[in-house]
Amino acid sequence: MRVLLVEDDQTVSNFIAKGLTEAGHLVEQAEDGKNGLSLAQHEKFDVIILDRMLPGGVEGIHILETLRKQNNSTPVLLLSALADINEKVAGLKAGGDDYVTKPFSFSELQARLEALVRRNRNEAQPQTRLNIGDLEIDLLSRNVRRAGQKIELQPREFRLLEFLMRHAGQVVTRTMLLEGVWDYHFDPQTNVIDVHISRLRQKIDKPFQHALVHTIRNAGYMLQE
């Protein structure tokens, strides 16, 4: 994918650019808000990574608002040193699609970027059924089947599975699950997510030949055939 990276801290910028390039993406770097805005307006990107605080008067939020006013709907991921939840809300209100606080792990950033780009592509067709391999879920009747066999899930387990299925083939981090499935926006201290995943595995993987839920070391989980 084509990524515009607007970040004034050279160390952070180069670190992200290197990682994304290595993962096979094309990265365009801008050091200040003015350049960033002009690039965003004149070229087409799959996603924009935008630092909230930029030198030279043109703030990240300002760029974002300007783009949205011009009906530019490129997904935007905001980067910020401010962990404050109100800051996050303000960023999302201004039209941001996701928000990552520094310091972050590269795998967190990458997972979120890929989720954003995918979501943007998928939004057109609303789905009522999701499936991967021999696992199938019906979003309307809330039925879950694997290899034709019906599986009973608690409502939250269903949401967890649905989230994983919507991101099938992608890494999903623990924080993404906490936010997306539990609407939880703070550090839960213990690894609650791991426990919930292992419950889900008991039901959808254990009784069957091969596993669909995979642990991705130092990153999170992935649902994959």
Partner: peptide, 9 residues
């Protein structure tokens, strides 16, 4: 919501 998250743990 919170209880549900921790009950399993």
């Amino acid at each position: 919501d919170v209880l549900e998250l921790y009950t399993v743990v």
